[in-house]
């Protein structure tokens, strides 16, 4: 009986050290490896040229991704961002203050209208890994 208790007393510290090493090693792998999986790994297909002055094209924000991630629109088209996630998002232009929707709440829609031709890359200010592009032709 005493041998059993002694064995148990020996096993427990070994078990704990093993668990600590396993958890620590996983943490190191995660921190060293950076991102794994996620919305940015498989961008949704881009939309064909749509819209026109006075028309609206909708980009849905769902599961931390802009869908479609790339839209090609005619100059003067309004792009509407509808947030389907329960956390807030933004659509913010990468290069300067070209457009910024500000915080978009759950089920809320905010719009931007781009009149000049060009390619506008944007991201979510709260979740910078979420990116998209609007091509204005």
């Amino acid at each position: 009986m005493s041998k059993l208790l002694t064995d148990r007393a020996r096993i427990i510290p070994v078990l704990v050290v093993t668990i600590v090493i396993a958890v620590g090693a996983t943490l190191v792998i995660v921190l060293a490896g950076g991102s794994t999986g996620g919305a940015s790994s498989a961008p949704p297909p881009s939309a064909a040229l749509t819209g026109g002055r006075g028309k609206t094209v909708t980009v849905h924000i769902s599961m931390f991704a802009f869908k479609p991630s790339t839209v090609t629109v005619a100059a003067g088209t309004t792009v509407a961002f509808t947030n389907l996630d329960t956390t807030e998002h933004t659509a913010t232009a990468n290069n300067g203050p070209i457009f910024d929707t500000g915080a978009i709440q759950h089920d809320q829609t905010k719009t931007v209208t781009l009149t000049k031709t060009g390619t506008y890359a944007y991201h979510c200010a709260f979740h910078p890994f979420m990116t998209g592009t609007i091509i204005v032709k």
Binding site: I12, L15, V16, I19, V23, T26, L27, V30, G34, S35, T36, G37, G38, A39, S40, M63, F64, A65, T86, H127, F129
Partner: peptide, 29 residues
């Protein structure tokens, strides 16, 4: 909700596993 968020998804999973492991070990000791 967070399985599509890079890095954070792994950290959340790691937290869940670690909490379970510590809880079980705490039950045994």
């Amino acid at each position: 909700f967070l399985h599509s968020v890079p890095t954070i998804n792994t950290l959340f999973l790691l937290n869940a596993v670690s909490a379970a492991v510590i809880a079980l070990a705490l039950a045994a000791c």
